[in-house]
Design a protein around this nucleic acid. Sequence first.
DNA 1: CTTTTATGAATGAAGG
DNA 2: CCTTCATTCATAAAAG
Lengths: 203, 203
Amino acid sequence: MEWEKQEQEQQQQQENGGALYVKVMTDEQMELLRRQISVYATICEQLVEMHKAITSQQDLTGMRLGNIYCDPLMSSSGHKITARQRWTPTPMQLQILEHIFDQGTGTPSKQKIKEIASELTQHGQISETNVYNWFQNRRARSKRKQLGPAANNAESEVETEVESPKEKKAKSEDIHSHENPNTRAEDISFQSPEISSELQAFN
Amino acid sequence: MEWEKQEQEQQQQQENGGALYVKVMTDEQMELLRRQISVYATICEQLVEMHKAITSQQDLTGMRLGNIYCDPLMSSSGHKITARQRWTPTPMQLQILEHIFDQGTGTPSKQKIKEIASELTQHGQISETNVYNWFQNRRARSKRKQLGPAANNAESEVETEVESPKEKKAKSEDIHSHENPNTRAEDISFQSPEISSELQAFN
DNA sequence: CTTTTATGAATGAAGG
DNA sequence: CCTTCATTCATAAAAG
């Protein structure tokens, strides 16, 4: 993750009564974000430690810790059992898929799919077809994205140029031109192999 | 965890008018960030669940671990840090689009789109994708509108989504779904005081 | 300001 | 593989 590699792609949007609709972060927001993530990281680490501590004191034989769906609340009214008819990858599955996709192995062979699918089952409901479709779509879309990056929106209404210091974002109209053709998003992954492996162990 | 340690030295020097010290992120980076956070949330969730599972089988000897629970609000993707941008057609554009749509030419072919887009550019910011999406949505919705009023009863449990927005549910053995209660908060913070307090105990 | 609605965009799945 | 459709998500705009 290198924020330093800025892309001046952002179009400057006007401020709307105080709400800024750009991907511009102030130091404060940045700090907040960093702290938030830091909190997550800390929690994860501590939970892992905790887990270690606990398991080292007892024997886990027989314990079955499968996928637990965390949806504590929100299930108040019983009715409306509208089951979803469409698969939605869990963040975990997404990450793994994304990772595999980035391996450049552009050929999701039949056999490979089977493997991937079975592995992902540990992180939630999934079928081979889902995996297959995912790769198909993923490729098709990443491809189209390259060809038709296009200048996206920014719509103006009757706006009274509210001057805000943040409003000055330079829209370098120069030669920076297009986006890096191959912005192969570096996959997101745990920076801590420890946690990563811990999680594996759980499942 | 390395990521969050990242120094924020990348102060963005803005050329226009004055130097602005903000962080600018591309959509790509933004999305990455969201996913990263989402992954953390998932990990926390699972770890917490694990902890529950473990402690429920043993008597909390020594370790005093209360019932930590993961706030569902944190468990989904799409954490909003900065609003996402969105194109909004100008009245003029809308009128033209609407007109074209009415021509009955329900086929907004690739080439056609290009033409339309370039023409509409004269009336405001717009991209081919915008045009494409507009037609897609327009058709889909005009279609749904017809079927909506007609089929009024029986088991078509579809469109009655007037229930509490947070109310969602999925059958246990069904497709795993990930709901996403909307968080209006601009800052992401741990919504569960329980976790933070628990963490205190560890330190 | 908060809630609701309308609609632009994202994406899983189906067809060719 | 590519295109198209259906459904869902998120947010700008509108309503309260």
